[in-house]
Computed example of a mutant assay.
Amino acid sequence: MRQAHGLTADLTTPDRTIYWLDLVLTATVAWSGLWLAATARHPDVIAAAGLVGLLALYRGLSFIHEISHLRPKDVPGFRLGWNLLIGVPLMTPSMMYEGVHNLHHAKHRFGTAKDPEYLPLGRYSPFKLGLFAAISLLAPLGVILRSGILIPLSFVIPPVRRFVRTKLSALVINPDFVREDNDKTRPDWLAQEIGCWLWCWGVAALTVAGVVPVRVVLTWFALFSLATFVNQLRTLVAHYWENDGEMMSFEDQFLDSVNVPPPALLPFLWAPVGLRYHALHHLLPRLPYHNLGKAHARLSAQLAATSPYHRVEEKGLFMALGKLFRRAGVTPLTVEADPVERQSA
């Protein structure tokens, strides 16, 4: 860790221009792609616009991870801008990740029952892994239910408010995670919740009135659903998921995480905004996403060949998923070979 910090000390400052330019361009492409896919008539145009809109929407949504690590002074106004352009329109505001994701990085929580973003997926059956991925397709339905029904109800029914705050206000993997409820909602978080509520009701009213075509809403639902599915597949290969609740050393935590570096090109699409360097992110969580590639190149070149840093690389999404499913028992005869494959990666 000391070596890694020393080699990347000059890469920890976020570039505000990159953040804002990336966000604005991504949001523009996402919503333009969605609108074109929802209004075009030619199947090829619909397919192309839908694919571009899907990838841009997914990239935009992925910024929520970066926001959870940014301090307000790092990129002033970025959190508000992201919520206006992406978070509220997808009814997935930043408050659902802030104060939650940092617990995943806590050394005494990682991989334990207190980690909101960890399950022993490496020990799951193929069926359970498939179900874990497929359930993400219902995400749009979940945010509509939360924003359009439960949030307004929670302001008049205290038990519903408590349930929403503790169980429905965090993007997590661990279903047993309960968010602390201290009865003090931050004003900006409250504004995000009200914004999602009003957005949901506003779109519904405009759709019923015929102002917003039903096809636009259905396209939004489809692209958002597919974006969360891609993210769930990425989640499956972000770690090796081998721990079963025990406390782990920092090195073991790092070795449980995964990088998918160049020369692979597709991770730029399915693991955007620096998510392809997930192991590096766990090693140095303060590095901004636009500097992770530079940091990885330095560490790869200057750390000894025996360094643990070289043991956490995968070549691509499908290869990593294949290893996970083989460990889960899809092809039992190859399970014993996996540890060797991992050590030689």
Rank of each mutant, 00 (worst) to 15 (best):
D44L: 15
L103K: 15
S94F: 01
H42E: 15
G77C: 03
P72T: 14
H101I: 12
R41M: 02
S68R: 03
G87S: 08
S68M: 09
L90P: 05
A49Q: 04
D44F: 06
L84F: 07
I46Q: 01
L80Y: 02
L57T: 14
F63V: 02
N83D: 15
T92H: 05
P43C: 01
G50S: 00
D74R: 04
M91D: 06
P93D: 09
R71G: 13
G53S: 07
P43G: 01
P93K: 11
M91R: 15
L103V: 15
L57S: 12
P72H: 08
A48I: 14
A56L: 12
S68W: 04
P93T: 04
S68H: 11
L85S: 10
L70M: 14
P43T: 03
I67V: 14
S68D: 13
G77E: 07
L55V: 14
F63D: 00
L90C: 15
T92S: 13
Y97W: 11
F78V: 04
P89E: 11
H104C: 10
M95Y: 15
N102W: 03
L57I: 11
E66Q: 05
A40K: 01
D44M: 13
A56R: 09
G50I: 01
H42F: 06
R71C: 04
A49E: 02
W82V: 11
G99E: 07
G81K: 08
S62F: 00
W82M: 12
L57Y: 00
R59V: 06
V88N: 06
L55I: 14
M95S: 14
A56H: 10
G60Y: 05
Y58A: 05
A106F: 07
L54C: 00
P76L: 06
F78H: 14
V75P: 10
G77K: 01
R59D: 05
F63S: 00
V88Q: 06
M95A: 03
N83M: 11
G87W: 08
D74K: 07
L85V: 12
P89V: 10
S68F: 02
H42N: 13
F63Q: 13
G50H: 01
R59E: 11
